[in-house]
Design a protein around this nucleic acid. Structure first.
Length: 438
RNA sequence: GCGGACGUAGCUCAGUUGGUAGAGCGUCGGGUUGUGGUCCCGAAUGUCGUGGGUUCAAUCCCCAUCGUUCGCCCCA
């Protein structure tokens, strides 16, 4: 019985071209985060189950995560998200860290679920968090970073939009303004989160099943506003509304033209305490939320230390890749190998020395040790997308002038190792694919 | 966890109202033994996802199972 060559359900193999693309995405993420002074951290992929159950307080965690018992009888979970982990790390050094902390990471995360479009069991997610700032500057900075990553990937403001809301305002509207009890507030907010996914009449019908019809009608009216200013005075005069309004203003002043208020925005996690945001793809074939984040001031405090105000977001690679493909932002990404050496006659000490010299010059060299025929070696190099071929045969060895072939232009030139290295480097520098410099 | 669709060559797929299969692309070889992408010629490759059932006979029908995929629940 032959073994299957397929990767595990819901997980992916990254063949070199896939990995190249991933490295490209990650490098844009890293460079953008670092431009804002964020530092990279990492942590174990395994965590004690409790850091997830304590937060959500539910057994759902058991059903939707990879959890097992280790040989010491400990319940262990493969991390499904990074936020509890980073909160744990901050809490662990609560007193000695220099605030504000600006941290980022690109962890591999796992959840036990049925795979579907844009959602696998395994994915990578950029996590950007700022700890220790209560003011809106934290929200502004984090949203700027997420906006700028998309821009640095080549996206324009027209291709996506940023929606904002605040948990506090939603709670005020449901609990205080409409006077709903806790259970009704909860079920109403779950419905609100799905409002855009259904017909309006369907939404109203479902809403009326959980609350008095009059209140449902009023809620629908409040959820239909496009701007904070359209809300009744009694609501928009509340602190959370003013705060959100100020943030929207700051975003506009920062040149972000695609951010707006969305009263239906909730986000699934319970740990958000105030402002939340989500980034939506504007492409008709992918009209969905790509990623988001918000303020969660209470999570660090769960570890028994003084709480730390925190704002962060998570950006997954699967949805981001879909965005890049749909908007045709995929850059040509070649191999890291610069040069494919073809030994025409035989492997000589001279040829070995030449190969070593190229490497010494900083050129990434692969050698075609076996193929005697030049045409096969060239085909192989083309297939590997290596930009240059170098021929070393009797002629070259004799006059120490080697033959370099540019596989894209088919042009050849002869020269010393030093000269040809410069030619290769010049071409490499010209093919920079990042939209961000450095 | 629930429901739909699908599973035939490396890839994309055709096919058989039940008699053990085909195309295109790709791969490999040759034309062209120091030069690729074009062209021409030739070749290889399948337990028709897996297991069981019905049948003289199953890739086809039935059941189960695994996998892929889309959606629901849930929500990175």
């Amino acid at each position: 019985m032959a073994l299957s060559t397929q990767p595990y359900k819901g997980a992916r193999d990254f063949y070199p071209p896939d990995k190249r693309f991933q490295k490209f995405m990650f490098s844009v993420m890293r460079k953008t985060a670092e431009r804002y002074g964020y530092e990279e951290y990492d942590a174990p992929i395994l965590e004690p189950l409790e850091i997830y159950t304590a937060k959500t307080g539910d057994e759902i965690v058991n059903d939707q995560t990879y959890t097992f018992e280790d040989r010491g009888g400990r319940k262990v979970t493969i991390r499904p998200e990074m936020t509890p982990t980073v909160s744990r790390m901050v809490a662990g050094k609560r007193q000695e860290l220099a605030y504000p902390l600006r941290w980022y990471s690109i962890p591999n995360l796992w959840r036990y679920e049925r795979p579907q479009a844009g959602r696998l069991r395994e994915h990578w997610q950029l996590n950007v968090d700022i700890f220790g700032i209560e003011e809106l500057d934290a929200e502004l900075e984090v949203i700027q970073i997420s906006h700028e990553i998309l821009k640095n990937l080549g996206a324009t403001d027209e291709t996506f939009n940023i929606r904002l809301n605040t948990r506090k305002l939603t709670n005020y509207v449901l609990a205080d303004h409409l006077g709903l009890d806790d259970a009704t507030t909860h079920s109403a907010s779950k419905l609100m989160d799905r409002m855009h996914k259904m017909e309006r009449s369907e939404f109203v019908k479902l809403l009326k099943e959980v609350m008095p019809p009059g209140k449902a009608d009023e809620l629908v009216k409040l959820l239909s506003v496009k701007e904070l200013s359209e809300l009744p005075d009694s609501i928009k005069s509340q602190e959370p509304a003013k705060r959100l309004s100020a943030l929207l203003d700051l975003l506009k002043k920062s040149g972000i033209t695609n951010a707006s208020y969305d009263p239906t925005l909730i986000r699934g996690f319970d740990y958000y305490t105030d402002i939340v945001f989500e980034v939506f793809d504007n492409h008709p074939d992918n009209n969905r939320s790509m990623f988001g984040g918000g303020r969660y001031d209470g999570l660090v405090g769960m570890f028994g230390v003084e709480p730390v105000p925190t704002v962060g977001f998570g950006m997954g690679d699967v949805t981001l890749q879909k965005f890049i493909e749909l908007h045709d932002l995929m850059p040509p990404i070649g191999t890291e190998t610069d040069l494919y050496v073809v030994l025409i006659d035989e492997v000589s000490d001279h040829a070995r020395k030449v190969i070593a010299d190229f490497r010494q010059m900083g050129i990434n060299v692969a050698v075609d040790w076996e193929s005697q025929k030049a045409d096969k070696a060239i085909k192989s190099a083309v297939k590997k997308q290596i930009p240059f071929c170098l021929f070393i045969g009797a002629r070259e060895i004799q006059d120490e002038q080697y033959t370099l072939k540019d596989l894209a232009t088919t042009k050849e030139e002869h020269g010393s190792v030093e000269y040809l290295s410069k030619v290769i480097k010049a071409k490499k520098a010209g093919s920079r694919y990042l939209h961000i410099t450095g």
